[in-house]
Simulated assay, not measured.
Amino acid sequence: MSNTKDPKLTGRHNPGILQAPAPRQKLRSRRDSSAEPKFAPRRTQAERSETTRKRLLDAAVKLIRLKGFGGLRTIEVASVAGVSRGALMHHFPSKHALVVAVLTYVNEMDFAQSTRRAQLARSSKDPIEEIIQDAKNFFFGDHFFIGLAIAMSDESTRRLRRETHQFSRQTRFSIEAAWLDTLISSGIPKQLASDVLALTLSAVRGFSVRRLIEDDPEQFSRLMNVWRDIIRQHLAASIPGKSRRQDRKS
């Protein structure tokens, strides 16, 4: 007796029966993708030029500190910076122009760094210590010796020394004025603050130059501790109640 029921479909493929194609998966466009590739924005010509200029200045700073002003060669500056001689000449057409730019560059950095420290030191319990650390960073660093090398160069660089002396001098005076304001804001009378500042800077500068004949960090640290004690005693004797106010802050 035949089975009149329809046969059940199985999962096996029947070559005699046409089957509807499986639905195609919709491709997600790149625009709809949440994982779009990220591309860094292209730098402008001005940005690329400024990057090259900074690399040249940093290379010149390194070489002047290493070889002195007399040993500076522009071709070597280009090599250390990793740029072509033509790129160097585009930014600095002469050694004179390069060195003037170097001095301007380092003075701008020193001014920004030191005046910021002086401003922050207004809330410090010990602004004298802040002055010593800022002076040490400058006078024991490359920038001071670069300026010193140019200042001590021979008569052939008279024009260079004349051009760079004025703004280097102005930078240091501006930094000292910022530190003077910090000391005055801590309650030290102006003349006394000016004397303390000048003596402290002179002490640190003197030890910096002494490194040319004897580099003794332990001696510097010990003697600067002595100088701090002398300054505290002098301020306490010169300003009635100064030591008591300092103790309350501490």
Rank of each mutant, 00 (worst) to 15 (best):
M1D: 12
M1E: 13
S2I: 15
S2H: 14
S2G: 13
N3C: 09
T4R: 12
T4Q: 14
K5G: 04
K8R: 13
R12E: 13
R12H: 10
H13W: 13
P15D: 07
G16M: 05
I17N: 00
A20V: 04
A22V: 05
K26V: 14
K26R: 14
R28N: 06
S29Y: 02
R30A: 15
R30K: 13
S34H: 09
S34L: 14
R43N: 09
T44R: 02
E47C: 00
R48Y: 01
S49M: 03
T51C: 05
R53F: 01
K54A: 11
K54P: 00
K54W: 00
R55K: 15
D58K: 09
V61L: 10
K62D: 14
L63G: 10
L63P: 11
K67R: 15
G68D: 09
F69V: 10
F69H: 12
F69P: 02
G71S: 03
G71Q: 01
L72H: 04
R73N: 10
T74E: 11
T74S: 11
E76C: 06
V77F: 01
A81T: 11
A81K: 11
A81E: 11
G82W: 02
V83T: 15
V83I: 10
V83M: 10
A87L: 12
A87W: 09
M89R: 10
M89A: 09
H90C: 06
H91I: 05
S94H: 08
K95N: 06
H96C: 04
A97I: 10
V99H: 07
V100A: 05
A101L: 01
T104D: 15
N107W: 01
E108P: 02
F111T: 04
A112I: 06
A118F: 02
A121F: 08
A121Y: 06
K125W: 04
P127N: 07
I128P: 02
I128T: 09
E129D: 13
I131W: 07
I131N: 05
I131Y: 02
I131M: 15
I132V: 15
A135Y: 03
N137E: 12
G141L: 09
G141K: 06
D142A: 14
H143D: 14
F145E: 10
I146D: 06
G147Y: 02
A149D: 12
A149P: 01
E155Q: 08
S156E: 13
R159C: 02
L160V: 00
R161S: 02
T164Y: 01
S168W: 08
S168M: 09
R169E: 15
F173V: 13
S174M: 13
I175N: 11
A177V: 09
A178S: 15
K190W: 01
V196A: 01
L197Y: 00
A198E: 10
L201A: 07
S202K: 05
R210M: 10
R211E: 09
D215R: 03
D215V: 00
D216G: 00
D216I: 00
D216H: 01
P217A: 00
Q219V: 09
F220M: 06
S221G: 05
S221A: 15
S221F: 06
R222V: 00
M224G: 00
M224E: 03
W227D: 06
I231M: 05
H234M: 11
A236W: 07
S238F: 04
S238Y: 03
S238L: 03
I239N: 11
G241L: 09
S243T: 11
S243D: 15
R245W: 04
Q246S: 14
D247L: 15
S250D: 13
S250C: 07
